[in-house]
Design a protein around this nucleic acid. Structure first.
Lengths: 208, 208
DNA sequence: GATTGTTGAATTGTTGAACATTTTCGCCGG
DNA sequence: CCGGCGAAAATGTTCAACAATTCAACAATC
């Protein structure tokens, strides 16, 4: 992807992740074109990239909108997560890749101690990314990073009730311990349990 | 994606799948623009779509090329297949979704009887697509369809040695029988065995 | 009053041309 | 043989225009 279009896509990605652009918001080509000092065509190329990541949806002749996830999408996303995360965990990983998982757990602990709610969410994403990275597949990593980006779309609401990451922190530690002990099946079992609870939680938050 | 750009992308997708555009071939914007009677910008939008599907790769300032898979890519793709196909099979499916799997098996048998090698490959793709569809996840279906499209990139060479689909046909039937019997774990086990053999085969063909 | 056309402005879709930037490649001198 | 020079070619980006579509406001009809 060309340099300028990539920059524009990154900028928009950032604004979506930060919540500056809320789900459902319309992205007008001309407005963005002026605001960012690039041509409409370049904005369009950026749109194409974001659309491929499902961060925006393109409605023909109507425009592009920041993706907004329905309750059914939540379930859909968790099906994907179960498939790739559990598969990666079952396959186990190298010493280094497990160390990366451990590092993400510790990162979460530090954030918890510092009361950094933002950092906790970030560490949790790193943890699950590290799980998938154990499989050593570039494609799987890309898929997972897109899934995590999609999840940020509804984390804004979910993270309101603080302290809900606390439980997950312990889960993550347990999963990591099982991996370090070489008991991949136990790790997978714990991960499945975590994912079930997480999905339930997210669904509950968004049903209201 | 706009209408014209979509049409162009489909056209290129077809030519790649048929082997009219071989891996590594360069796609020149101006040439395609003239040939298809669309503007360069539109061709670029089509490129963006194909790049997101990994059918072409974009090398900045150098152009776009039909993707060409290395041996390491083969392994990578099979990691993804193991993750999503096995997960879907383990989760089982509805009566109708299993019927779709059965339909793909029968489609393969008909093609075999007719000596239609092309149809055999197509039926095999349908079979594995139907397996993933059991999970009922739109995202998983999209991922699988892209993986299958990628695999067509090196099927051209592999399908040369005829009769190699014959064995797979029996495998598919056995997997389907296990699903129909409700024994998802057995189906998953057989699928894993199939995937291992298939990967070995593809690797062998491409090592030469 | 509610549904249905109609009109016109706003937005997206697509084109074509122009220019900047980068790569490619032949060529020439050493 | 080769390292650099420069022209040609291809991509990256912008700009301006027009076509096609959507959308909202308003008129018309029942």
């Amino acid at each position: 992807m060309p340099a300028v279009a990539t920059r524009v896509a990154s900028e928009l990605r950032l604004q979506i992740a930060e919540g500056a652009l809320l789900p459902g918001a319309k992205l007008k080509e001309e407005a963005l074109s002026e605001e960012l000092g690039v041509s409409r065509n370049t904005v369009r190329e950026a749109f194409a990239e974001l659309a491929s990541e499902r961060l925006v949806v393109r409605q023909p002749n109507r425009g592009v909108f920041v993706a907004s996830l329905e309750v059914s999408d939540i379930h859909d996303v968790y099906i994907v997560r179960r498939a790739i995360e559990v598969s990666a965990v079952r396959g186990g990983g190298s010493i280094e890749s497990i160390a990366a998982v451990r590092a993400a757990v510790e990162e979460g602990k530090r954030a918890a101690k510092a009361g950094d709610s933002e950092g906790l969410g970030s560490a949790n994403a790193h943890f699950h990314g590290a799980l998938v990275a154990m499989a050593g597949s570039e494609r799987l990593n890309v898929i997972m990073s897109q899934v995590l980006a999609e999840m940020r779309l509804f984390f804004h609401k979910a993270s309101i009730d603080g302290g809900f990451y606390q439980d997950y922190l312990a889960d993550n530690d347990q999963i990591c311990k099982a991996l370090e002990a070489g008991d991949n099946d136990l790790a997978a079992e714990r991960l499945l349990s975590y994912l079930a609870r997480s999905e339930e939680h997210q669904t509950a938050v968004h049903a209201s």
